[in-house]
Amino acid sequence: MADPLVSIRDLRVAFHGLPALRGIDLDVAPGEAVGLVGESGCGKSVTWLAALGLLPRTAAVSGSVRLEGQELLAAAPSVLDRVRGGRIAMIFQDPASALNPVKRVGVQVAEALRLHRGMEGATAEAEVLRLFDQVGIPDAKRRIHIYPHEMSGGQNQRVMIAMALAGQPELLVADEPTTALDATIQAQILDLLRRLQQETGMALVLISHDLGVVAEMCRRVCVMYAGRIVEEAPSGELFAHPRHPYTQGLLAALPDMVGPRRRLEAIPGGVPEPWNMPPGCAFAPRCGHATPACDAGMPGFVPVGPHHQAACVHVQPATVPA
């Protein structure tokens, strides 16, 4: 991989002494699309909130997050202000609550332009119109003057994306960007994100609970469970040959759109509570392959194929061609 744009090492987060992230190592290369999948509470959002200093003070954060070598975790607020919304932008699930309900949408995007690119007045307005056009908001001249409640959920998400693009970010972190949207609108927004990524060359981190969304959007996918990455692979490889029992379980639990209907293979039990973490592999209590060896310690990554690794003591390492 080329020199990473963002490099996360041993990132740990605890809330009131209870672990939420238990050691994340993740690199994002310039221009690449990485997916983070996992279920509620696995830490996929917390990873990026922590990286960008967006967690409340009660969170204990340790480890390292570097943006082209510059450490972000202990960075001064002035440094973070330039990074957030500038070099790294983030969009969320619920655009309506991320937008200011009493400000016209054009003004909100113009504010981002002023903060990050020092644009004012007519220059800013022209750029807002260009951004609205770029994110596919029709009739932009009129739309910049309306309020978020006058737009649909899909249009609001486009406004959020326009605002994120305002700072010309090198990385866009999209946290469940289409989860609140209907299927046909989700398809539009995913299409838009894919096109923007090609046009601007920015990197994309897509956080989603939906394996399908991640499979379609990302070259590389990391599967998270209970605050750790348990498997990482090129997306085609991950869905064709999942190696970690949790990934295998997730795929088996998902109903199919094609082929014969089969009984779903549910993963028994539930995610461990943070105060009750198993001593070794966090998935062991729900895993059909678990043995006493799983409780011996946290399993490290085992290379199982090209760019493919799984954190399970039972997977057989493959000889990876250099």
Partner: peptide
């Protein structure tokens, strides 16, 4: 519900 729990409830 999360995928793994969803499968339990569907079954």
């Amino acid at each position: 519900l999360d995928v793994s729990i969803q499968a339990q409830v569907i079954n």
